[in-house]
């Protein structure tokens, strides 16, 4: 079971490296979207492994609502580039 989590951490390191290296702001936003989704899925995996419904509920909420921040930030950055 730890192998699944370790593989997911390795997969999480890829967009973190991308967000660190790439100077394009949209590439950083893509990396942010990838990381936000991956961490939510990891919370769900942890909740299933531990059989903890409370953590699972929080994982579902973060997965569904947490990407609203991405949308709001993308709108502001888009209007910034247009101006």
């Amino acid at each position: 079971m730890n192998g699944i989590l370790l593989a997911m951490i390795l997969a999480l390191l890829i967009p973190i490296y991308e967000a660190w290296q790439d100077e394009d702001i949209w590439q950083k936003m893509l990396a942010f979207a990838s990381i936000a989704t991956k961490t939510s899925i990891m919370i769900l995996v942890v909740s299933v492994l531990r059989d903890d419904w409370m953590i699972g509920l929080v994982g579902v909420l973060i997965l569904s609502v947490g990407n609203a921040a991405l949308m709001l930030l993308a709108h502001i950055i888009r209007r910034l580039n247009e101006a």
Binding site: A19, K28, M29, F32, I35, A36, T39
Partner: peptide
Amino acid sequence: IIRGILGAVAALVYAL
């Protein structure tokens, strides 16, 4: 944007 990434990772650590 990196602050958003930090928030996502922090939420993962807290849930863990």
